[in-house]
Design a protein around this nucleic acid. Structure first.
Lengths: 119, 119
DNA sequence: TTAACATATGAGCCATTGTTCATATGTATT
DNA sequence: AATACATATGAACAATGGCTCATATGTTAA
């Protein structure tokens, strides 16, 4: 019987069955990548604060900026990221643009995250 | 009546009530930061793949490396990150170290993330 | 149309981060 | 003790990402 792994031999020899089973059951590469991308969007405290603000109420850009104590530009850049991830939606009312959350999963994900953090 | 915000005036004047209400209801700064840190850990496709592999079964470092087709060093570095976030635990068995998931919330969070990605 | 305001966006800067490479630590075997 | 193996870790490098600054776009009112 032959094994031709560059790196390690003995240990992997012993666990070949597990490795093959696990490798076979992994979700598609593309989906795993998208999931990581989604978490990457959540992985910034400014965006987390924006999302939590939007849990309370829809808000205009300058309103969010004021709540977070940041510039309009910084908020707008981050809203762009959230928009591209289809996590927020917006509606225009005159000069003002109101943003709100676009996905029900977000609440569940954040609730679990809060629970983990406060274990 | 006075308002002294550097940036914007008219819009915020109109939405002062909303802004104050939302600002008052935001979770503690520290918790929001920790939540972002948690998502930051999830926000890398290597770590996502490691976590998904561990959903299937506990595994040794070289086993994970083989499943993902990456070096032992890269995996070890990432397991360190997961360990520091208290997301994985490990047990030693001779020369081998087996890693497994340490938190029940992870599964829920990932399930929701998968649902969002595949909407 | 011109002015004022709300928002969006591009360029640039600095900080963070994932990987590689080399090496150290820890464990078992001889 | 010496060797072999599994894992951990530090330094360095390249790439990514968030913020600022300047400016563009879009909308309303005069």
């Amino acid at each position: 019987m032959e094994h031709n792994h560059d790196t390690h031999e003995a240990c992997c020899e012993a666990h070949t069955l597990t490795v093959e089973k696990v490798a076979g059951n992994l979700p598609d590469e593309e989906i795993l990548y998208d999931v990581a991308e989604l978490f990457k969007v959540f992985g910034d405290s400014t965006r987390v604060r924006i999302i939590c603000a939007l849990f309370e109420s829809e808000m205009c850009v300058c309103g969010i900026a004021e709540v977070l104590g940041m510039t309009q530009s910084a908020i707008s850049h981050q809203l762009r990221v959230l928009k591209q991830a289809r996590l927020v939606k917006y509606r225009r009312e005159g000069k003002t643009v109101f943003y709100s959350l676009a996905d029900a999963h977000i609440k569940t994900i954040f609730n679990q995250a809060f629970e983990h953090v406060m274990e």
